[in-house]
Amino acid sequence: MTEQKMADKITTYEPDNSLKKGYISIFKEIFNEFKKSRWLTIQLFKRDFFAIYKQSFIGVFWAFIVPIISVGTFIILNRAGVFNIGNINVPYPIYAVLGIAFWQLFSTGLIASSNSLTKAGPMITKINFSKKSLVIASTGQSIVSFLIQLILVCILFICYKIAPSIAILLIPILIIPIMLFTLGIGFILSLLNGVVRDIGNALSIFLTFLMFLTPILYAKPKGMLLHITKYNPLYYMVSVPREFILTGTISEWRGFLISVCISIIVFIICLIAFHLTETRVAEKI
């Protein structure tokens, strides 16, 4: 029966294919594609994942290095009086490592997804498969790093003899907004990076800048920086889950909800845009 179905399946290729069909069918197409390529996504993730760590001795534990070094630097700067971390009522290392873990979901996820099409270049130009799966699979890497970094967080909780709130069990839900946001932007950047390589180069510089602009390694700032922070959805997506895990309360409900809405909207718009344009990326890579 399924074989008969396969033989019956009609595919058409023509310019502006999806545009002609209308927006409702676009949603249907995307949904079907997701459903069909679930297994493919997992396989692509495995391909990336194993390949990265096969030629490495410490493997996944590289994920420890970034938080330890950046948090360590900030502790040293703070002790030396060069930099003021601000008022934080939990041990700083826990605060900072947890913050970095959430931030890296965004930053490493975005870098990986924006490079995903370019990296798979030869494959894309020779095999016809779901490019969405490729982008989604690439962000899987950042989730693995996140889980590894959670181990570090747990170790710190034990060291400081502090118990996290029950919210730590909600982590799978808490990371959804930031993942949607990352994927959405990742979809668009992967396309643009496929055509113009400047995007990928500019991205890592921009992300470093953005990290220092967002209160991840320091407390919520005052003055001009506060105004920027107030309108930075990433701030809410990092600091609200962090606060929730550390204290069990959420003080900035409004900002968080708006950020969640923004991330959902960004994800949907970018996904549709990706769907409409992915057909011409193979020839440009």
Binding site: M6, T279, A282
Partner: peptide, 20 residues
């Protein structure tokens, strides 16, 4: 590549019945 759906046509239409 067009028949395989890797590149898309700039003009015209390709219709394929079945798995390629």
């Amino acid at each position: 590549k067009l028949l395989n759906g890797i590149f898309w046509p700039d003009k015209g239409k390709i219709t394929i019945r079945g798995k390629v």
